[in-house]
Amino acid sequence: MIHALAFYVFAAVTVVSAFMVISARNPVHSVLYLILAFFNSAALFLLMGAEFIAMILVIVYVGAVAVLFLFVVMMLDINIAELRQGFLKYLPIGAAVGIALFAEILLALGAWSVSPVAAGSLRAKVSDVPNTEALGRLIYTDYMFLFQAAGMVLLIAMIGAIVLTLRTRPGVRRQKIAAQIGRRREEAVVLVKTRVGEGVSS
């Protein structure tokens, strides 16, 4: 009973805050609503007993992604009014398409039933082991290939970011650590005997 109640509360808050993300006037508010939605989703995962995923969601999405969003939104100074200019113009057709699609999906969901063979194809028995371990097995053993592939995707993203943004500007002084370290005393220091009153001249 309490379980069901909690589900409906969290789910409702998730949906409402997701809606607010796209309808809030202030983009900073949007991001905050997004964070709220993430939190509630994490709670939903918790209700399902997937505590590891719930925690990851909080750490990664709230702690990293959403905060990144917040920075970007603040830096970009988006003019919402300008973005909304065409809103009313496109509203009717947009609404029509959205409602049609939504209705169709609802229709499909109404007839939801688990496929008879679905149960047989589940990979991990959640009940046997702690779900962190179950996830670990899946990711690092069964889905090792996917894990590696995901690694490649990240590598590509990294390369792409570097390629598109890294510039070597001429005239910028850079620290050459190896040269600094490799420098010897003889290269840097010259001992000159000076007599009093004459100064140093090479």
């Binding site: 999906i105 229709l107 499909a108 969901l109 039933s113 496929s115 008879p116 063979v117 149960a119």
Partner: peptide, 22 residues
């Protein structure tokens, strides 16, 4: 709706019978 993401698994499921609209 099908309970699996594996292609052979999906094929088995769809062959088995009633396919949900979803």
């Amino acid at each position: 709706f099908a309970g699996t993401t594996s292609f052979p698994g999906l094929a088995r499921g769809f062959l088995a019978g009633d396919v949900a609209t979803g």
